[in-house]
Design a protein around this nucleic acid. Structure first.
Length: 391
DNA sequence: TCTGGGGTCCTAGGACCC
DNA sequence: TCTGGGGTCCTAGGACCC
């Protein structure tokens, strides 16, 4: 096997996008994240990281560490625009592109060599083009497998390129800490440490059976493979979505049932319209409830017939919420639709429930109006306010 | 310092069926 | 009278990733 898998990762993506469109920010610490009372950092550029600011850090802490930083609210529309354009650059090289998120992707360039040269040259070309067109740096890892490519890019950050040849895999891999393995977070790292396993090499040397006792069947097999430099996963161009959800954390805890109802309706509308736009219906509705002490529960119900109607999501979610929140002060609520199936692949529901059909039509009308006139313009009272629509 | 929001995958128990 | 073994679905929770 040769090293033909690329992992491309944008450096501090959200912050880089902001600097790119506001050049006067270059060189200054830029921090993108929620500006509300309970916001956390989504992205910090490298000048900000010098102050100890990193993603997931509470914004309050970030301000303390970096009082002269520039603090910005995320603009996902802009990041998606840049992301789409970057992904298009990848697809100019090969159709075998697997986006992992808005700011990273795997590419299989083994078939692109006759046209574009060795993987290293391809990687350099991609880095140059992204920088030329978007003023954003990225880091590319090149390796024989997905995991090794991702590891390579992590180690070469920022603005870097690292090629790991097949015969160099184990020497690179085995001295690294177990936490560098994909799927090993804080908890798993502790479990492994209790077995005396600290490096990737330690994990590779242990029989899978002993690993199984510590981390479970699936993780044991997976980790042992990765630690041994093997990774059978191929670059997957068509990944299907499994769920769509929305959640919100309140600035201060909420116990007022009316406020909770309205928030839940808004979340349900968001989930419904995103499902409809993506062309999915789903059968299982899950509500997520986080109490003031951070204890978090989920409660779900599965429908007979899949839906994409926000009103149905809301009705179900609201029943679950009132049943399980017990009037307590809540920090967060969320709604998720799971068990997704493409809308066209589901037999249309026979005329049961005129009301649901009425709601679906109404919501679709809102969808198309929004497409034409913008989300802010079209907000009918019936969808905004539960009390107005029911009677 | 006080903990976001979008997801995926795995585990485990119970129900139910053959 | 005591009791199997496998498969699937549903629900809840948790770890992890970006």
């Amino acid at each position: 096997m040769t090293s033909g898998i690329l992992h491309v990762d944008m450096d501090a993506f959200f912050a880089s996008c902001e600097v790119a469109r506001r050049p006067e920010l270059r060189g200054r610490p830029v921090i993108v994240g929620g500006l509300g009372a309970r916001g956390v950092v989504s992205a910090a550029n490298y000048p900000a990281r010098a102050y100890g600011v990193h993603s997931a850090l509470p914004m309050a802490m970030a301000r303390r560490r970096c009082p002269r930083g520039v603090f910005l609210s995320p603009d996902f529309t802009e990041y998606k625009r840049v992301s789409d354009s970057v992904m298009a650059i990848f697809r100019d090289v090969t159709p075998l592109v697997e986006p992992l998120s808005v700011d990273e992707a795997f590419l299989d360039v083994r078939g692109a060599r006759r046209l574009f040269g060795e993987p290293r040259e391809i990687a350099e070309g991609i880095r140059e083009r992204i920088f030329a067109e978007h003023d954003i740096t990225c880091t590319v890892g090149v390796a024989p497998t997905k995991f090794m490519a991702k590891l390579a890019s992590t180690k070469a950050k920022p603005d870097g390129l690292l090629v790991i040849e097949p015969d160099g895999v184990l020497a690179f891999l085995h001295p690294l800490p177990v936490s560098d393995l994909w799927g090993v977070g804080e908890k798993t790292a502790s479990s492994l440490a209790r077995l005396g396993l600290h490096t990737v090499g330690d994990v590779a040397a242990l029989p899978v059976a002993r690993l199984r006792a510590a981390v479970g069947q699936a993780a044991a097999l997976h980790l042992h493979e990765l630690a041994s430099g093997r990774d059978p996963r191929t670059v997957n161009v068509t990944r299907e979505e499994k769920s769509v959800g929305a959640e919100t954390t309140f600035d201060t805890d909420v116990s007022d049932p009316d406020v909770l109802r309205r928030a839940l309706l808004e979340l349900s509308n968001k989930v419904g319209s995103r499902a409809r736009r993506a062309g999915y219906v789903g059968r299982t509705v899950t509500v997520k409830i986080r109490f003031d002490d951070f204890r978090t529960i989920t409660r779900s119900r599965t429908l007979h017939t899949p839906t994409d109607v926000a009103r149905e999501l809301f009705t179900l979610a609201n029943a679950l919420l009132t049943e399980h929140s017990g009037g307590a002060a809540l920090r967060l609520i969320g709604v998720r639709l799971e068990g997704l199936v493409e809308t066209g692949r589901v037999a249309r529901q026979p005329a049961l429930g005129e009301r649901e059909h009425g709601w679906r039509d109404a919501e679709q009308t809102v969808d198309s109006l929004r497409e034409r006139f913008g989300a802010k313009v079209v907000r009918p009272a019936s969808l905004l306010d539960p009390a107005a629509g029911d009677h």
